[in-house]
């Protein structure tokens, strides 16, 4: 592994870790869906996807989920994070390759699919299809937070590319 790649990995893992921590401090007062998250850590997966590649962003995503699960998170919620993380990674990679959307559109796809992945696991675990009731709310919040994360992500990608090219 090239030194520059190792350094970028370190940078992004650290950033993902910090953002996940910040996210535990912020509760969004959105009554229909308590426990809603901004998806800040998706910034890092998105940035890795565009600056390092598909495989590297998967490594980062899984590393982040495991690290956070054992520190600020709760092991019982790790399964949800993994389901959401994997589904959003696969779909973001696919949509990035199609070039239909810019980084912002890919981020929205990531935000929404992260929510859908978590809901699917929740339906399976509690064995109650009615949880799907949250889905329309999560579509809307996913579109909004995905857009914001995408705009921020584009800024981060620009800066990482500056570092990579020096």
């Amino acid at each position: 592994m090239k030194t520059k790649k190792i350094a970028t990995y370190g940078l992004l893992v650290a950033l993902a870790f910090i953002l996940s921590y910040v996210e535990t401090l912020v509760t969004i007062p959105f009554p229909p869906v308590p426990g809603m998250k901004l998806g800040l850590a998706n910034l890092v997966v998105l940035a890795a996807l565009y600056t390092m590649g598909g495989k590297e962003s998967l490594v980062l995503s899984v590393l982040r989920i495991v690290l956070v699960g054992f520190t600020f998170g709760h092991p019982s919620t790790m399964l949800f994070s993994i389901a959401g993380g994997l589904l959003s990674w696969i779909l973001m990679l696919l949509f990035m390759k199609t070039k239909w959307f810019s980084l912002v559109g890919v981020s929205i796809v990531g935000g929404i699919s992260h929510n859908i992945g978590q809901i699917l696991v929740a339906i399976y675990i509690v064995d109650n299809i009615n949880i799907a009731y949250y889905l329309p709310y999560l579509l809307i919040t996913g579109a909004v937070t995905g857009t914001l994360i995408g705009i921020l992500g584009a800024m981060i990608v620009k800066r990482i590319k500056n570092v990579q090219n020096t």
Binding site: W100, F101, S102, L103, V104, G105, I108, V109, I112, Y133, L135, P136, Y137, L139, I140, G142, A143, T147, G150, I151, A154
Partner: peptide, 25 residues
């Protein structure tokens, strides 16, 4: 930076979500 397709995606998702919420209500 933001493409036209991105805006279509945002619009479509929000309309779909609001439509389902309306139906449920």
């Amino acid at each position: 930076m933001i493409k036209k397709n991105d805006l279509i995606l945002i619009g479509a998702v929000i309309i779909l979500g609001l439509g389902i919420i309306f139906f449920i209500n």
